[in-house]
Design a protein around this nucleic acid. Structure first.
Lengths: 324, 324
DNA sequence: CTGAAAGCGCTAACAC
DNA sequence: GTGTTAGCGCTTTCAG
């Protein structure tokens, strides 16, 4: 930067300003600086800038795993929205382990990220207060909480499970079952499903909870196990569309009609829900919208604006197709 | 850090060493420093450390999009391997746009990342020399090149396409087709497929190239278009298992037997290949292994070791299941 | 094994 | 609109 300043015949600060706030610099000066930058091939050192300004322009984002398709859309939209606002996303994977989440938060804090995005609302003991005392914006996603750490963009997994169950009963099912991942957000869905089942006089909902990472090839065996245990099951709600697609393949393998013999319902409304045969009924969640709103909320907060409502319920929608 | 030094009764440097190279510090001193750190809740500022040491311990990683399942495994393994070595991965998405890739590389360089990982071997003009003159390790993945920028861990997409085609002809197919993404790695696969077709006296391989991002719901319509144009097609090779699963659903919708009426072959050997019905024949690529080897190569290089062979061909394997 | 001095490359105040 | 001064919080020499 010293070289650029010399070449442009100005001082260090002027170069800094020409780069970071061009409108505070006279047009002629700006042109001179830019010429010097181009000629010398100068590349600013953002690390030095971060240290001096105590703003890193990095947002730390923690997800269970990036292979989880439903969450990928959120990360993609978040990255795009924050990127347009001049921020870079630093991603880390918790592998669904709260302790890893807490450890990675420390790493992010040590890197002086400007904000942190978390997946879900269930965290390791102490993380909540640790984050609140850190002084940076924190945003939770993909669930609802009565006590958000700070900002929150999500929807109620409990209510989504309830709505899915109601849909299944409305379609004539008598005995729904659940296949999901063994983690908090799936548990909330299952609780919702159990609540609606209780209202219909069904005291218990059989469930298969898969140790994460749950993937499509787990669905078949789990559905088989479920049906071996409880042959009266006539509907299965899966915590994501990928598992539901696996269930569809399993039904096809057995030559079972869907929804004739068994109804299958997914979650997320991923492309696979529309591509399947039969097309999957599902709970639509706009994952991209979550990422976008999250990015907007963070940008506003990072720009110093206090938002009216720090909690955004993005909602969900039951989509009926052919599988129920 | 000054406070910790005071509390422990040592100097600044000693605290720094206790944290970064504990074995260079006397056990008693180390204990005192650690006690002070714990008591004060001291969290090192990695940004300041990076500036002083000119090592950020960040590796920049560029992928087309993180929603691309086949690449997610690589990123996951890379993140894990580098994480164990004390490095953090900073991820960015190019959306398959070479210009975005070049722009993001500049951002990474400005952040002084210690190394850069790229997807594929086709880049914007000038990026190659820009990276070579940057002086940091660069690693390309998911393809082969006769002129790698620096390090490379991948496999030949051309040869994979050739092998898939040979498998189809071996299984009795006469007229293969291709459905893939409209980007370099798919193009290489298609070239391989065309090469083997030519050897079998098939002068042309009909293809549908989907503007990225290609997803599962594109497969059905594209397969339909392909067959409308060329009803004699009796096999389709898809650039990934997800598209192949979409093709399977489309066949099911039409009541077509697979592979009786048409053979379907995927690429990647994702879980969906094993979960489908019929189970998908595919080209197995160990995406996780690519990420792992890439991480190891980078760690070695970053530790100052010169490796014998900077290019690793991870290979691939044709897996026959039920769909061909 | 420990410490003192000298920056790393930039930005925030404050002046002019 | 531009410059001067004083750091940001750490690591790297080089001594001892």
């Amino acid at each position: 930067m010293t070289d650029v300043a010399a070449a442009a015949g100005v001082s260090l600060v002027t170069v800094s300003r020409a780069i970071n706030s061009p409108d505070q610099v006279a047009p002629a000066t700006l042109a001179a600086v830019r010429a010097a930058v181009g000629q010398l091939g100068y590349l600013p050192n953002l690390t030095a800038g971060s240290l001096a300004s105590s703003r890193s322009r990095i947002v730390g984002c923690l997800v269970p795993t990036i292979s989880h398709t439903v969450i990928a859309e959120t990360v993609e939209a978040l990255t795009r929205t924050l990127g347009d606002g001049g921020y870079q996303v630093m991603l880390a994977q918790t592998q669904h382990r709260p302790d890893d989440e807490a450890r990675l938060v420390e790493t992010f804090l040590a890197r002086r990220v400007d904000a942190i995005v978390l997946t879900g609302v269930n965290h390791a003991v102490g993380l909540r207060s640790r984050l609140q005392s850190s002084g940076i914006p924190v945003l939770e996603t993909w669930d609802m909480s009565s006590q958000p750490i700070d900002l929150l963009v999500g929807f109620s997994n409990h209510d989504a499970g309830f709505a899915a169950g109601r849909h299944l009963f409305d379609r004539g099912c008598r005995m729904p079952a659940y296949i999901g991942s063994d983690e908090a957000r799936s548990h909330h869905q299952l609780q919702g499903l159990r609540a609606v089942a209780a209202q219909h006089g069904v005291p218990d909902v059989p469930a298969e909870l898969i140790l994460p990472p749950a993937n499509i090839e787990d669905a078949g065996p789990r559905l088989a196990a479920l049906l071996a245990r409880r042959p009266e099951v006539d509907a299965v709600f899966c915590s994501n569309d990928t598992l539901a697609a696996g269930a569809l393949f399993e039904c096809r393998r057995r030559g079972w009609e869907v929804p004739g013999r068994i109804a299958v319902m997914g979650f997320g409304d991923l492309p696979i829900a529309r591509a399947g045969f039969p097309r999957l009924s599902t709970v639509q969640v706009r994952g991209g919208r979550i990422g976008e709103r999250a990015g907007q909320l963070l940008l506003a907060r990072l720009a110093g604006q206090q938002q009216a409502d720090p909690v955004v319920d993005i909602g969900f929608e039951v989509v009926q197709r052919e599988s129920t």
